[in-house]
Design a binder for these strands. Structure first.
Lengths: 242, 242
DNA sequence: ATCCGATTAATGGTACGAACATTTGATTGA
DNA sequence: TCAATCAAATGTTCGTACCATTAATCGGAT
């Protein structure tokens, strides 16, 4: 055991929750860093002075929260995980499913956040980022007007990249994470959207205009373009998160 | 046992995950509705033909996901829960905490989403909701100019309510979720913000103007007011999400 | 000396049984 | 009639044993 004793014995009721709370606290406070090995279940059992079942149940909770990882075998045990966006996305996804939120609501929200990103990206984006955005927009245009028909897969990929770049240009991580979450939640419905030529053309036109305006440093004009699309929303394929 | 047998025995590895998957599937598919009682642990044990530990660990996972509830005693057991927004918000909140996002980034994002909410609320909000918003804004103003000094706690509470109401007025559940998540993440830092008279006055003024403009059906003017605050962001207390 | 396969030890996953705690409903007695 | 008590169902915890997986170690063949 390399690490000093971190945890104190617990007594009373809801032992597994108390155990989970102590471990979570140690992780969130930064006492243990991502990638570090915590202990084996049997070690924790003795540190907390509880049965192994209680430890395992606490670990299950933390694993579901996404803050630990459990490995089998020698050198196995509890490892602190770097939190990933996927966990947050999964929770949202579940919520949307049970509440039967239409995909149009998700798209509307994403577009709304986009508007602000455009402003911030124009103000804070590097020159390189702006240039890259324009290049990608041009690429999109080309892919949509191929003589062999539009390359939907590549268009989707670039659209995704542009979205992430735009978020990154805000220099605000919250935008990046939010965009990630929304993209993951939209996920499988993406294809549905992109199959619609109308949606595709509109999206690409928006990107081209937006990229140009951002590059030209005219955020307010770029914004007004997106306002129009908000006030008269496009017809989207109907669908519910199943 | 009232319900018919729903589940099939599982074998092999990762039994608890298989059990969790079957139960989750039954819930998400609507086979079992929120509020329904599923079974006792001992029942599930026999239905799945696994040990008690496996069942309990599966349930811990589902409980953390927020889709079931566990009650003790007679009439206890597994109950299907109506998903609550807080579960989905918690994950993202954890992520933001671990990554030490500056609170200024959170506030910026919240303000950005607010802008769009104002537009949508003006378009879609009921008359009652608009009236309520104005009333609350007036209340805020009064609370801030009390002869005995501003009542910070009440101001915070009303601000919170207004934020949720504004999100609700968009008639888009995603905005509601987002606002909830942000409020949860900002959480304890709220107090810090509200202690600053400058921030407080600015927030209240914004609310008053916004509420009035929304009620008067002039979304674009309401929006322009908030743009000003975005372009020259207010000085906020420095702080990091710990 | 080097490399590959078998052995071994640490560790998570599962099972079973027992005892305790909590909740609800039924029973009992004043 | 009402309150105290008891009993049954059920979650919570513990302990032990055994299996499966993994990584390190050891040993022999080249």
């Amino acid at each position: 055991m390399r690490l000093p004793i971190l945890f104190s014995p617990v007594t009373g009721n809801n032992l597994s929750e108390k155990v989970a709370a102590q471990i979570e606290s140690a992780i969130l406070s930064g006492t243990i860093l991502p990638g570090n090995r915590l202990s084996s279940e049997r070690d924790l059992q003795t540190q907390f002075e509880v049965g192994r079942g209680a430890v395992r149940e606490a670990l299950k909770t933390l694993k579901q929260k996404g803050i630990i990882e459990i490995r089998k075998g020698v050198k196995g045990g509890v490892y602190v995980k770097k939190l990933e966006i996927d966990n947050a996305s999964e929770s949202l996804s579940l919520l949307l499913k049970q509440n039967k939120v239409p995909i149009t609501d998700l798209v509307e929200f994403r577009d709304a956040v986009d508007e602000t990103e455009v402003i911030l990206a124009a103000i804070r984006g590097d020159r390189d980022e702006k240039r890259q955005l324009v290049e990608m927009a041009m690429q999109l245009s080309e892919l949509n007007t191929l003589p062999t028909g539009p390359d939907i897969e590549k268009i989707k990929a670039i659209d995704r990249e542009m979205n992430l770049l735009l978020a990154k240009m805000t220099k605000n991580f919250v935008f990046v994470w939010m965009k990630n979450t929304i993209q993951l939640s939209i996920g499988s419905y993406d294809s549905l959207l992109y199959e619609s030529p109308k949606y595709r053309s509109r999206t690409i036109d928006n990107w081209i205009n937006t990229a140009k305006e951002i590059a030209a440093g005219e955020p307010l004009r770029a914004l007004s373009l997106m306002f129009l699309s908000l006030c008269s929303p496009p017809e989207l394929p109907e669908g519910q998160a199943s």
